[in-house]
Each structure stands twice: as C-alpha cells, then as structure tokens.
C-alpha cells in the first residue's frame, strides 16, 4: 500500500523537479537548435546547446529586474511567484514509485486545485505591469483555461472513477494489472493536451506568444523572468509527470524498482511532448475553444460513461 515519503522528501522534491525541468528544457533546446541552425554535428556542440537553459538562467540572474509606471507590483510579483509555487505544491501528491510527499484522500482534487492556481498566476502576471499587450495576454490565458479545464477535469474524473478513489495511491494501485491508458485512451489524450495548456507551453503558448512581444512575460526582466519562465517548465514537468500515476500505471512494471519506472515513464511522456510540439503551430484559443467544447468535452464524457459502466459491472 502506498505510504508517505520521509520528511526530507519535502526538500528533495523542488530540487528534483528543477533538475527534471532543466533536463527537459535542455532537450528542447537541442531540438530547437537543430531546426534553426542545422544539426549540431558533434557531441560537444550538442552539449553546448543542451546547456542553454542553465546559461539563460545565469544570464537572467545577472540582469536587473525592472519596473513599469503605475504597475501593480504586489499582484504582479504574486503572479510571477505563484507559477513555481503551484507547480511544487501540485508535485507534492506526485508519487515516486509508490511514495508521494503526501498522499491525501483527495489527492486528485488537490492536484487540480493547485493547477488552477496557474490561472491566477498568469492573469496576475499579465495584469501587474500595466501594459496593454501583457494584459491582453493575461486574458488569453483565461480563455485558454475555459477551453482546456472541462476536458481536463473529465479526464481526471475518469481516472478517479476507474480506481473508485480520489487518492492518488489508490489510482496507482488499481493499475497493478492493466494500465488505465489501455481502456481510457481518450481521457489520456485529453489529459496530455490539457497538461500542455496548463503549462501554457508549446502549442498552447498563446498567452506568451511572440505576436504580443512575449505576452504576459513581455515586461518581465531578470529574476522575475527567470522565476516565471522557469516555473512554467516546472509546471510542464509536474503535469506531464502526473499522467504516469493517472494512466500509465505509476511505479508498476517488471524487473525495475517503482521509482525507476516512474522516472522512465515520466521521461518518455516529456520527450513525447517536446517532440510532438514541433509538429504544431501555436493554437489560437478562439479556434481551440470550438474543438475543446464541441469535440473534446463530448468525447471525454463518453469515455467517463464507458468507464462508469465497466466499474458498475465488475
């Protein structure tokens, strides 16, 4: 049965998430470099490209933060800081193998609640600097939230329904035989899409898009920018990582110990997302909203119905 991790895991968690975020961002930088500048053509050059996130972080630490006139500094800062905080708090219920920092009886709800903080975070960061483009982009994220949140919640509900529990540990335990992804493929796909949307990354980066000069992050400099954009990578790692206990059997797997399976599966999901992202432009929410509500919501509802019928008859 799942149990809580020792106390020191509280300290390890943010560090581990940060390492995973840096590795993911490094992988992304290698692929971007190949697209923009041709293949690295050497392990050294590829290594230098992989180190881009670290170098960028150092650069942003040296850069001074800045202020804009009549800015709402309190709320703007709050928005910036909330992004990594939400990611780490959501990560608290993420099981490593079979142990999470905390495994409350409503773990799935906790996870969703922490993600919802991202709504506030991006909007506040867009509102803070008193600048038209960043405010427009803050509102873009609210539209994005409306589009992704319903399919996302139905996907979460489906997994919880399959396990007949909101405890993440129970969801993992219920997949000892068959992984949920096998009989809930639609929920899994909807979850992955919304994971990207929640991390406002890749095809869902509209709130930070180039067409608005960087969107909600347009006025952020120095350490503010680092915390906000770094927090975004943390969110991506956490939301992608949570698909492992929900749908991919958590720590279950042959031969290797649970934590290794968790690590492998998380890495596979992240790699998949980073690679697939290259095939897509940024989606405008005006268009995605139609698809989300007309296609994804009915599909995820049907998926939930199917799972409910199976659970009732077993």
């Amino acid at each position: 049965m799942p149990e809580n991790a020792p106390v020191w895991a509280i300290v390890v968690l943010p560090v581990a998430l940060a390492v995973a975020a840096v590795v993911t961002a490094g992988f992304d930088a290698v692929l971007s470099g190949a697209a923009g500048r041709g293949h690295a053509g050497g392990i050294r050059r590829a290594g230098r490209r992989a180190a881009t996130p670290v170098r960028e972080a150092l650069r942003l630490l040296v850069q001074q933060p800045r202020r804009t006139t009549a800015a709402d500094r309190l709320l703007g800062r709050l928005g910036v800081v909330l992004v990594p905080v939400a990611a780490v708090l959501a990560g608290a219920v993420l099981p490593w193998g079979f142990r999470a920092v905390s495994d409350p009886s409503v773990g799935v709800v906790w996870f969703n609640a922490m993600e919802a903080l991202a709504w506030a975070a991006v909007w506040l960061a867009g509102w803070g600097p008193n600048s038209a483009l960043s405010l427009i982009s803050g509102y873009r994220f609210l539209a994005q939230g409306l589009a992704y949140e319903l399919p996302h919640m139905f996907a979460l509900t489906t997994a919880a329904l399959g396990a007949e529990s909101l405890r993440v540990g129970d969801v993992v335990a219920a997949q000892e035989g068959v992984w949920f992804v096998v009989w809930m493929p639609v929920a899994f796909a909807a979850y992955l899409l919304s994971a990207l949307a929640m991390a406002f990354w890749g095809p869902f980066a509209h709130p930070l898009a180039r067409d608005a000069a960087g969107g909600a992050a347009a006025e952020l400099a120095g350490v503010d920018r680092l915390v906000f954009l770094g927090g975004r990578w943390l969110l991506l790692v956490v939301t992608a990582g949570f698909s492992v206990p929900l749908f991919l059997g958590g720590g279950h797997g042959p031969l290797l110990p649970g934590w290794a399976w968790t690590l492998l599966k998380t890495a596979a999901v992240l790699a998949l997302l980073v690679i697939l992202r290259r095939a897509l432009p940024v989606l405008r929410m005006e268009r995605y909203m139609e698809a989300a509500w007309m296609v994804l919501v009915p599909l995820t509802l049907l998926q939930a119905l199917f799972v409910a019928v199976v659970v009732l008859n077993r």
Partner: peptide, 10 residues
Amino acid sequence: VVGWDDVAAP
C-alpha cells in the same frame, strides 16, 4: 507570428 518556430527557423 503564428508561433511555429520549428519551420520558421529553417
């Protein structure tokens, strides 16, 4: 502008 750097860059 449409946010597809992976083809804009090449």
